Each structure stands twice: as structure tokens, then as C-alpha cells.
Simulated assay, not measured.
Amino acid sequence: MQTDKPDIDAAALIDARIAELNDWRGATLIEIRKVMHQADPDVVEEWKWRGVPVWSHGGIICTGETYKAAVKVTFAKGAALADPSGLFNASLEGNTRRAIDFHEGDKVDAKALKALILEAIALNTSK
């Protein structure tokens, strides 16, 4: 599963990552992915950097990294996004990225996450 080859089906690799996790992290990644596709049915799923799910539209929207204690959703241009719901709780010191760390038991605020996704797409496509 450690590949960056463009001919590899990213959606299948993301499915495999979710199945391999088989715990709350997989369930959280499923929720995040579901919101992503609801927000943008044309979102492009990619598999980069030796195993990181990436969602793009006009540029990278965000990544979905999984760690032992968190699922980290990092918005590539998060510092430029309004976050009225206060979802961003990680990588706050940088000038570009912002992230949301989801921990076991955390609920995904679908409405607020969708708003961030749509704002990121608008930023990516406003060139």
C-alpha cells in the first residue's frame, strides 16, 4: 500500500487504509470522506507521500493522516480560511496550513467541516 504511482486507484487505497485501521480512526476517516463527497461530488481523491489520502479540487483541499491517537485533517491553505465554528485545533502557528485533530470519541461536525471544504475549494478556484 506504500505507493505514489499515479496509475494506482487512490479510492481503493483509501478504502484499504480504512479497512486496515478497523477502529475509531477508520470510522472517523469514513465520516470525513463522506462529508468531503457531500460538499463536492467532483472532488479528486489522491494517494500521496507514501500513504496519505488527499482530496483536491483546483489544488489540494486537505489531507487525512492517521496516527495512533488522532486523525489529522490538514487544510493546505487553512490559514486563509475563516473558521467561525472553531474546528481548527492543530498546526495553528504556521502561515499556511491549519489542521483539525480528531481523537477517539470526537464527533465530526459535518456542517462546519463542509463549510471549510467549500471555502477551500472557492479559494483554490478563485485564481
Score class of each variant (00 low, 15 high):
122 A>R: 03
47 W>I: 02
2 Q>K: 11
62 C>Y: 13
70 A>V: 04
73 V>L: 05
107 K>Q: 10
9 D>C: 10
70 A>D: 07
52 V>H: 10
25 R>M: 11
50 R>G: 13
90 A>F: 13
122 A>W: 14
35 V>I: 06
45 E>G: 05
79 A>N: 04
108 V>N: 01
127 K>N: 07
101 D>Y: 15
84 P>A: 07
91 S>F: 13
81 L>H: 06
103 H>A: 07
1 M>Y: 14
22 N>L: 09
103 H>F: 15
70 A>M: 15
18 I>T: 02
31 E>A: 13
93 E>A: 07
68 K>W: 12
57 H>V: 06
119 E>C: 10
67 Y>I: 03
18 I>E: 06
8 I>C: 12
34 K>D: 06
67 Y>Q: 09
122 A>C: 03
63 T>K: 05
7 D>Q: 14
60 I>Q: 09
114 K>S: 13
113 L>Q: 06
55 W>I: 01
66 T>M: 09
37 H>M: 13
60 I>Y: 14
62 C>M: 11
81 L>E: 05
98 R>M: 04
106 D>H: 12
5 K>F: 12
63 T>Q: 04
113 L>D: 03
105 G>W: 11
22 N>I: 02
84 P>C: 08
85 S>E: 11
20 E>Y: 09
33 R>K: 03
41 P>D: 06
8 I>T: 10
41 P>N: 01
98 R>K: 10
82 A>W: 11
122 A>L: 10
52 V>C: 11
56 S>C: 06
83 D>K: 03
33 R>H: 12
7 D>C: 08
59 G>L: 07
90 A>V: 11
7 D>S: 14
1 M>E: 14
20 E>G: 07
32 I>P: 01
42 D>G: 02
91 S>M: 08
33 R>G: 05
90 A>R: 10
106 D>W: 02
8 I>A: 08
81 L>K: 01
116 L>N: 03
37 H>L: 08
48 K>I: 07
100 I>S: 01
86 G>Y: 15
66 T>Y: 12
47 W>D: 00
20 E>K: 12
109 D>W: 08
126 S>P: 00
27 A>F: 12
14 I>M: 03
16 A>D: 04
23 D>P: 00
49 W>Y: 09
127 K>P: 03
113 L>N: 00
54 V>N: 02
76 A>L: 08
23 D>S: 09
61 I>V: 15
10 A>G: 04
110 A>R: 03
27 A>P: 01
21 L>S: 05
48 K>V: 04
119 E>L: 03
99 A>Y: 07
55 W>M: 06
115 A>P: 00
26 G>W: 15
32 I>T: 08
74 T>V: 10
124 N>S: 07
18 I>P: 00
26 G>N: 04
72 K>Y: 13
69 A>N: 10
44 V>W: 15
20 E>W: 15
1 M>L: 13
2 Q>S: 15
24 W>N: 00
80 A>G: 08
103 H>T: 10
51 G>R: 01
76 A>I: 14
105 G>R: 00
